[in-house]
């Protein structure tokens, strides 16, 4: 049996619109600001995960996108969660929360830095949040680049998937800067392509990642 790296699901969230495996999802009320949109989407997904409200918008967006790719795929039921890697990238790191932390220290008469804000001033916290929610304890890496580099992400994930320590990977691009935001996430599994099953099943190649992203 030949095991091949296969993209089993993907998700895009942009301009208050959500696509899962290429299909547009109906959102109850999407003519709202970004923060409200995230809460609406959370409620529509019935996640029942109160920690969601403690997160910054980057992590909220990441948790929702990850949920979409994990819920909507045809991957095998039996997998080891310590072999699921998470590799993400963006342009703006945690700049939105960085600005919020600076607001708490800029005025010496109102100087109250908040630990709950500061902890989100690292982009890889989003990897931590996804790892915690899904108990994924495999490889991690967060990269920062000007735009989404599908070639690089494909290379890095492929190297990891060649190792026996990694069977699955959640990868993507997740950026928040002011009111501008974008999430693109996909789930890769080493599987036998002939046993395709339902849903998306496509080879993990850089060209395919670009195609799904655009």
């Amino acid at each position: 049996m030949i095991m091949e790296a296969t993209i089993v699901s993907y998700c895009k969230i942009k301009n208050n619109t959500v696509w899962v495996n290429g299909e547009k999802i109906n959102i109850d009320n999407n003519s709202v600001d970004f923060s409200a949109f995230l809460v609406n989407l959370y409620r529509q997904m019935n996640l029942n995960y109160p920690k969601f409200f403690k997160m910054d918008n980057l992590c909220k967006l990441g948790i929702l996108a990850a949920e979409m790719v994990i819920q909507n795929n045809s991957k095998s039921e039996n997998f080891e969660k310590d072999k699921v890697a998470i590799f993400l990238a963006n342009n703006s790191s945690s700049i939105e929360t960085d600005r919020n932390h600076i607001k708490t220290i800029v005025n010496k008469n109102d100087y109250f830095p908040s630990p709950a804000v500061f902890v989100y001033t690292l982009p890889n916290i989003i990897i931590g949040e996804i790892a915690i929610k899904h108990k994924f304890t495999g490889e991690n890496a967060f990269f920062v680049s000007e735009t989404f580099d599908a070639n690089f992400m494909h290379t890095y994930a492929s190297i990891a998937l060649q190792s026996r320590h990694t069977t699955d990977a959640v990868c993507g691009w997740i950026n928040v800067d002011g009111n501008e935001y974008e999430a693109f996430m996909y789930y890769i599994e080493k599987k036998n392509l002939n046993k395709a099953g339902n849903g998306l099943n496509t080879h993990h190649t850089a060209e395919m990642i670009y195609k799904l992203y655009n």
């Binding site: 109250f112 830095p113 908040s114 630990p115 709950a116 902890v119």
Partner: peptide, 9 residues
Amino acid sequence: SIDALELIV
């Protein structure tokens, strides 16, 4: 633990 620190603030 973060909430505990936040309560101090």
